[in-house]
Design a protein around this nucleic acid. Structure first.
Lengths: 124, 124
DNA sequence: CGATCGTATCCGCTAATGCGAATATACTGG
DNA sequence: CCAGTATATTCGCATTAGCGGATACGATCG
């Protein structure tokens, strides 16, 4: 876990448009619905219908969100007849969410008060 | 202002909202400009003017972005006279970026092709 | 004290994006 | 085959949010 410091050189923004791709990657988790779906899938494999029931949004929207998460590499789809099952295969995804949650929790107060980014579901 | 304990009741409404806050946290890194600024500050402490010169955007925009990153707990500001210096204090921030970059790199192809999230500066 | 520099905030504009509803596609069962 | 189910895609709409430019604020210098 202590290898982050020595990799500081690779963090430099001289990698060209890699910043844009990374931003895209982060933005995929910047939506409450997708984040809720991802955490639901971290719990185990679920079909699209299950996800629809879980988040309570329209089927089309959920399908798009899941495809988005799959494109970004967070989840993987497994077709079985009419059903499409999604799940998280890379354990680093759980690591990422856990680490981010720890950081967010430590700054929860300031985060909630940050009006520069809309809450988008933040219930006062 | 009341005590920290008193604020906790208002700032931590219920555990279910944690998803919204976490999404906010991720969205802060979902913008290429903020991500570039964060990586610039991972390199060391820099003033707002330095950041403006680095990213090449208007001073007002950069100032807002930096304040946003500070609100989310990614960076910290240090006033010295007229100048305001920003830097990353929490080593977990570097961890988070490193982990995310590793994941994004492994799915770079699919990520670039994901049209469900706009590239926003993503190009060759 | 008045001029200037560094920074923060405000304002309109425009592009990005999440939403539901409608529709298309794919597969299964009778 | 045709009906039905599960999922994917498209469309119009409303909101979010990043952008530059103008301006306000605070500190320093002459």
């Amino acid at each position: 876990m202590g290898s982050a410091t020595e990799q500081a050189a690779t963090l430099l923004p001289d990698s060209g448009d890699q910043v844009g791709v990374l931003a895209k990657f982060f933005r995929a988790l910047g939506d409450p619905t997708r984040l809720r779906l991802l955490e639901f899938l971290l719990d185990g494999e679920h079909s699209v219908s299950d996800c629809v029931a879980h988040v309570g949004l329209s089927q089309g929207r959920v399908s798009t969100h899941l495809a988005c998460l799959a494109d970004c590499g967070y989840v993987r789809a497994r077709r079985h007849g009419r059903w499409n099952y999604y799940c998280v295969t890379d354990p680093r995804v759980a690591e990422l969410v856990t680490l981010a949650r720890a950081l967010a929790t430590d700054n929860c107060a300031a985060l909630s008060g940050c009006e520069r980014i809309d809450a988008a579901g933040d219930s006062a």
